[in-house]
Structure formats: C-alpha cells, structure tokens
C-alpha cells in the first residue's frame, strides 16, 4: 500500500510540473488560437538558465540554499520571459492575420531553432546538477517525501494562487480574458491587444521557468532535447483538461503525471509515453472539448 501512495506522491509532483507547462499552452491557445510548439523549448531553456544560474551563484560564493533558490528562480523567470516575449515578437506576431498553417509552421521552425541553438551553445551532452536538497521526510517506514517534492508542490500551489488572482482580479487579467473572448471587440473598448498577447507569452514562459528549475532540482539532469517530450505531454495535459481552460490545464497535468507514474510503476517504463498519447487519442474521441473545456464556437 505504501508503494501505491509513494507513486501517488511521485505522480502528483510530476503532474504539478506538467501542469505549469500546460498553463502556458492553454493560455496561448485561448488568446491566439494556436498551438505554441516552441513552449516545450521555452521550458528547456528555463532549465538551462536555471542550471547556469546555480553554477554562477555557486562560483560567486552564495552558500545559503534558500537565497540561491530564490535568486535562481528569479533569474530563470526573468530571462525565460524575455525568450517568451521574443518568440512571440519574431515568430507569431507578424503572422497574426496569415492563413492558419503559417503560424504553426513558424512555431515548429522556432522549436527546431531553439533546440539546436541550445545544443550548439551549451553542448549536446547531458548535464547534471549536483543535488541541492538531499533531505527526505519519512511519512511511514517506507513512504518518503523529499524536500524537492515538497518544494515543487508548495511553489506550484503558491504560483497557482497568485496566478488565479492575476487572471481574475487585476486589470491585466481582465484584458487577457477580454482578448480571449473577442479580440476585435476588446481592441474597440480600449484594450491594448498586442501588449496583452505579449504579456500572455511572458506569463506562460515565467510559469514554464518555474517548472524548468524545479525539474532540474528533482531529476538533477538536463539536455537540449528535454523540452520535446515534456512539451508534448504538457500539451496532452492541456487538451485533456480542455484547451483554453486554466484550471483544466492544471487538472490535466496532474492526471497525466499520475497516469505516467502509475503506468511506469505497475506496467514498466517502456511504454509509459505510449500510454500518455493513448490518453490523448481517447480524449479526442470521447470528449473533444476536454474535461473542463467549453464547447468552442466558431466565428467567421
């Protein structure tokens, strides 16, 4: 039974990371109506920036773990946000009124570009970060939860609170929701649509940055290819939860994390990714709007 609960903890931790990435997909889809293929790469870049920031702080002689962690998170979020902003400016904004295939191809080009950019500048080999937190808490004899897991769960919960406040209560969130419903009408009543879309990408990138930093703390390894699979799974999570729905993305992320870790625990690790994609197919057949999604109305 402990084994089951252990997998539950692992699954929820993994799911929180997927959920954070999935939020970026779902926000962008909600507001611009396109799949941001480069979002997985943004997450990968965040992990690299976080990794470099850890090394930088270590070489500068910062020893306090808490200070390091906060600084790394801030550095990674800031610079990753710049990447998110630049991706939108370069690859998507000029194509906003182009035929619908154009931004998709541009996005896939951006994804390939970023992946190879990191490979060329940071090297193709898998990098490893020495463990920062090593302490484990024993809940029962064989059931443990690590500091990193607690950290991931805690920071995700905190971020979600802040994030939902931002979306529901602030002028930025109002503008964001308005653009999501009707971009033209929002522009007519004085919402700066370009700025709102830029901020959406920045927000998505900042959330992905937290996920990226947490994942290198959790697994301790990173490479230029890590954004591909994680990005795809997060997208599956967004679709599962209902694309465009923010709480759906988080729910989808948790479910995908649970499916993955239970499948790996009970059926073996070889086919766990197959299971995740099978879920995607199943969702599209049975419930195309996702678990919490609204029915999409097509506008001409």
């Amino acid at each position: 039974m402990d084994y089951f609960f252990q997998q539950l903890i692992n699954g929820i931790t993994l799911g929180a990371i997927y959920g954070l990435i999935a939020l970026g997909y779902t926000m962008v889809y909600g507001i611009v109506g396109m799949i941001n293929f480069a979002h997985g790469e943004i997450y990968m870049i965040a992990a690299f920036i976080g990794f470099l920031a850890f090394l930088l702080l270590a070489s500068l002689g910062v020893t306090s773990v808490i200070v390091t962690l906060i600084l790394v998170l801030v550095i990674s979020m800031v610079f990753t946000s710049v990447y998110g902003f630049a991706v939108e400016r370069v690859a998507y904004r000029p194509l906003r009124n182009a035929p619908k295939l154009a931004p998709l191809i541009s996005a896939i080009g951006m994804s390939i570009f970023l992946q190879n950019y990191v490979q060329l500048t940071q090297g193709a080999r898998v990098k490893s970060l020495p463990p920062v937190f090593t302490q484990n808490f024993h809940l029962t004899d064989s059931l443990t939860i690590s500091t990193v897991q607690l950290l991931i769960l805690g920071s995700t919960a905190l971020l979600l609170l802040g994030f939902s406040y931002l979306i529901n209560k602030t002028p930025l969130g109002r503008a964001q929701r308005a653009c999501e419903q009707d971009r033209k009408m929002a522009a007519l009543v004085g919402v700066d649509v370009d700025k709102t879309i830029s901020l959406t990408f920045v927000l998505g990138a900042a959330l992905a940055a937290v996920a990226g930093v947490m994942v290198i703390l959790y697994y301790g390894v990173l490479d230029f290819y890590m954004g591909f699979l994680a990005g795809m799974k997060a997208f599956v999570a967004a679709v599962l939860g209902g694309i465009g729905s923010l709480s759906g993305a988080m729910l989808g992320g948790l479910l995908i994390g649970l499916i993955e870790s239970f499948w790996a625990a009970y059926m073996g690790g070889d086919y766990k990714n197959v299971a995740v994609f099978a879920v995607l197919m199943l969702v599209l057949v049975v419930r195309p709007n996702g678990l919490l999604g609204r029915k999409q109305v097509e506008k001409v």
């Binding site: 795809m232 997208f235 599956v236 679709v239 694309i243 197959v274 994609f277 995607l280 197919m281 599209l284």
Partner: peptide, 25 residues
C-alpha cells in the same frame, strides 16, 4: 479517424505523438 473529426489543429501534435509511439514500439 478520431482526430480529423475534431475542430482545431490537434492533428499536428497527435501526429507528433504517433511518430513517437511508432519509434518507441
């Protein structure tokens, strides 16, 4: 069959996933 019935650009990412499945298998 299931994917192309659905509105939206799901095909791209489902196909991506399918290619991954084929490679894993």
């Amino acid at each position: 069959m299931p994917i192309l019935r659905v509105q939206g650009d799901y095909l791209a990412i489902v196909a991506l996933g399918f290619a991954e499945i084929v490679r894993i298998v």
